[in-house]
Amino acid sequence: MAMNGAQALVKLLENHGVTHVFGIPGTKIDSVFIALLDSKIELALCAGVPPHMMLPITLDVGTNKHELLEDPLYLGLRQERVRDAAYDECIDEFVQAAPELFPRCGIQWEDFANIDATPILGRCRDKVCTYNDDIQGTAAIALEGAWLAQGRARNWLFDVNGLITAARRDLADFQKPFAHEHPPLTSFVEAVEALRPTCIIGVSTAPKLFNRQVIEAMHRRAYPRDEL
């Protein structure tokens, strides 16, 4: 009877991957409780979904931080993170089980690393009503605005390994459509100097990337309406 009640109530499952919390990689599972305080569930409230119809869930597949594995107070699974096929099987089992347990529910993915988040969306987008805030929210909205203003040919991406160029061999499938022909650049300041952008947008959560050198490089180009 209790399960029947749950099936009737739950309309949105917010699933935390614990790979990143607030963009911080390798965060321990305990931090999920902090993340819930600033959860995207509050956005669903704005869309008219009552809080009693939402259920936060955590998929704990381990941690690669050995200091956590040795911590007697650590709350998570005491093993190294499951990867590759075993990880995909875990996700797929959850995607199959969730709508069986909670019919017509939606699944919102939160704090999954990009290398996992995009393939997950690709596999389950035609199976369930699903959404990833980190992929389809912050970065996507900013990029869409830039595309509408200038088009893909004039938009460039820069990640932890440098400028996204066609010659790079470390790009994930979802990065390749954004790669341009250009000599490799690993310094963000050098990229600003070479490409002379009119606008730079930070969506990676990497700290102190827009430092004094970057701001000065933007200023030297003397565009009167540069945007950060």
Rank of each mutant, 00 (worst) to 15 (best):
L121E: 01
G122V: 01
G122N: 07
R123C: 06
R123P: 01
C124G: 03
R125D: 05
R125A: 12
R125N: 08
D126V: 00
D126E: 10
K127C: 09
K127R: 12
K127M: 10
C129Q: 07
C129M: 10
T130N: 10
T130R: 00
T130W: 00
Y131K: 03
Y131F: 15
Y131R: 01
Y131C: 11
N132A: 15
D134Y: 03
D134F: 06
D134V: 09
D134N: 07
D134A: 06
D134E: 05
I135V: 15
I135E: 04
Q136K: 05
Q136H: 08
G137V: 08
G137H: 04
T138D: 06
T138M: 09
T138W: 04
A139G: 12
I141C: 15
I141H: 06
A142N: 11
L143P: 08
E144I: 11
E144A: 14
G145T: 10
G145Q: 10
A146S: 15
A146I: 09
A146L: 13
W147E: 11
W147M: 15
L148E: 14
A149D: 14
A149L: 14
Q150K: 12
Q150D: 13
G151P: 05
G151N: 07
G151C: 11
R152Q: 13
A153P: 06
R154Q: 14
R154C: 11
N155V: 15
N155D: 05
N155E: 07
W156A: 12
W156F: 14
L157V: 12
L157A: 13
F158A: 10
D159F: 10
D159S: 14
D159V: 13
V160Y: 05
V160Q: 09
V160A: 14
N161D: 13
N161V: 12
G162M: 03
G162Q: 03
L163G: 05
L163C: 08
T165I: 13
T165K: 00
A166H: 08
A166W: 02
A167R: 09
A167H: 08
A167E: 13
R168Q: 07
R168F: 04
R169E: 12
